[in-house]
Write a protein that binds this DNA or RNA. Structure first.
Length: 446
RNA sequence: GCGGCUAUAGUUCAGUGGUUAGAGCGCUUGAUUGUGGUUCAAGAUGUCGAGGGUUCGAAUCCCUCUAGCCGCCCCA
């Protein structure tokens, strides 16, 4: 027998799972729409060139690449033009929704408004090792604003995401906020050579996890000198939650650093006091395209984040046309679902039955009559299911019970004779017989 | 990429070297030829994850592989 499990890190969604996903997606869409973001969809597959070198080394490695096909591949193999692994593929599954968006913006600049706000809820793929809340196919819920460098954008996105999480019932999330320019400033002051900045950032990001000793070791491994080391470690000492003043002090000696701090101050100024925003000078984020503010959503239950994002003013320009500023935020649907599942946060009224009413079948001869009755109920907007074959009534009821249908219409010999229907409420066990004309009303009443 | 745990019926799991591998739940049938949930009776279900090894004898011990879960790294 063939293995019936889905491929590693992929999942099947049974009806109840889909209901839960759709409930969360519904809230997300509603809020995004309310803030004036427009829907966008892009293909699952992109040209490999579009995605390569946009995310940093890690991203290149975790991309699902698609083999060249047919004659093209055969020919190239025969000719020996393919020399390494990279040349075997020309397409890849998208790794996130931001880079495809940047491609769309560069491609459709003239068809889109000057300031373009879009949301996009679609799956992305990463060849990562599956873990709690991490899968190889997962759904990202992105919002991005294109065309403006104003910190209003960041504040608005933080507000929208916070509203979503509040509406879903998360009371304890916090938005962690930092700025790539603040990080650059810190590194500049620390005397870290610009070439080592990205390496150093990766290490700084780990401060809260591997501690001072670990950071010292890793910085050394990455060839960052002792004088830089001391300054970067001072950052570790400062802890992760900083005040605006701490932050300004930290970077005052650097021009870029000060710019970043000023940005953050404005973002905070534009944000509601109800939102818990924590300045975290050690937050770095792995994706290489960020240039300005960066943020992340944390909850205590998860080692990872519920979502993250930031400003990427240079990415669209990488597609060879205009430089266009942009900023975005991504919520991880499965992260949200994992926590909601653990905490039992789903509402009780998620549909659990495939229909509101089931019609029984008495015999082969009356099957048509049952179908006709179901048609009448459906015309009245009632979700209706017909037991698909003749069977003992007991079995039909047992099935109705199993699938959790609240009401059953019994259309038996005697009912048909008198042009009546018996309606049984499965919860109370109550049953009454009514004329066909008043059936819809009877079924609709709770 | 590193470390740990797990894999036995549809499912959750018990079974730590000895006859024919068990239980709860679920499933099938009947009590009940027009009525589910409760009850009672009967019944079916297994390549013990795969492959190799040790042994008179392996679900059980050893090795390899595969898959899943939990930490770490990284990420949504």
């Amino acid at each position: 027998m063939t293995n019936t499990n889905p491929a590693r890190g992929m999942r099947d969604f049974l009806p109840i799972d889909v209901r839960k996903r759709e409930f969360v997606i519904g809230v997300i869409k509603e809020v995004y729409e309310k803030y004036g973001y427009e829907p966008l969809e892009t293909p699952s597959i992109e040209n490999l060139d579009t995605l390569t070198n946009k995310y940093g080394e890690e991203g290149n490695q975790l991309m699902f690449k698609i083999l060249k096909r047919g004659e093209k591949l055969q020919q190239e193999l025969a000719e020996g033009t393919i020399r390494d692994e990279d040349q075997l593929s020309d397409l890849a599954l998208r790794y996130d929704l931001t880079v495809p968006l940047a491609r769309v913006i560069a491609n459709h600049r003239n068809d889109l408004p000057k300031f373009f706000k879009r949301y996009q809820i679609q799956p992305v793929w990463r060849a990562d090792r599956p873990a709690k809340g991490r899968f190889r196919e997962f759904c990202q819920c992105d919002v991005d604003s294109i065309g403006s460098t104003s910190p209003v954008i960041e504040a608005e996105q933080i507000a929208a995401v916070s509203e979503i999480l509040n509406r879903l019932g998360f009371g304890d999330f916090e938005v962690r906020l930092n700025h790539r320019k603040v990080l650059s400033g810190i590194l500049e002051i620390a005397g870290v050579h610009e070439d080592s900045h990205s390496d150093a950032l990766v290490v700084i990001d780990k401060l809260d996890k591997i501690g001072r000793g670990g950071v010292e070791k890793e910085l050394k491994e990455r060839g960052i000198g002792p004088e830089g080391l001391a300054r970067v470690l001072a950052l570790a000492e400062s802890g992760t939650a900083a005040t605006m003043n701490d932050l300004e002090d930290l970077v005052s000696a650097s021009m870029v650093g000060a710019e970043g701090a000023k940005d953050l101050e404005q973002i905070l100024g534009f944000s509601s006091e109800d939102t818990k925003i924590v300045l975290d000078p050690t937050l770095a984020r792995g994706l290489s395209y960020y240039t300005g503010a960066i943020f992340e959503i944390r909850v205590p239950d998860l080692a990872g984040s519920l979502g993250g994002g930031g400003r990427y003013d240079g990415l669209i320009g990488m597609f060879g046309k205009e430089e266009i500023p942009a900023c975005g935020f991504s919520l991880g649907l499965e992260r949200i679902l994992v926590v909601m599942e653990e905490r039992g946060m789903f509402p009780d009224d998620l549909p659990s039955a495939p229909a509101d009413v089931m019609v029984t079948v008495w015999s082969e001869e009356t099957l048509g009559e049952s179908l006709k009755l179901a048609g009448e109920l459906r015309d009245a907007g009632i979700r209706t299911l017909v037991y698909p074959q003749t069977d003992k009534l007991g079995k039909q009821f047992k099935y109705a019970d199993q699938i959790d249908v609240p009401k059953v219409c019994i259309l038996g010999e005697s009912e048909i004779e008198k042009s009546e229907v018996s309606v049984k409420d499965m919860k109370t066990g109550e049953q009454k017989t009514v004329g066909r004309s008043s059936l819809v009303e009877t079924v609709k009443v709770d």
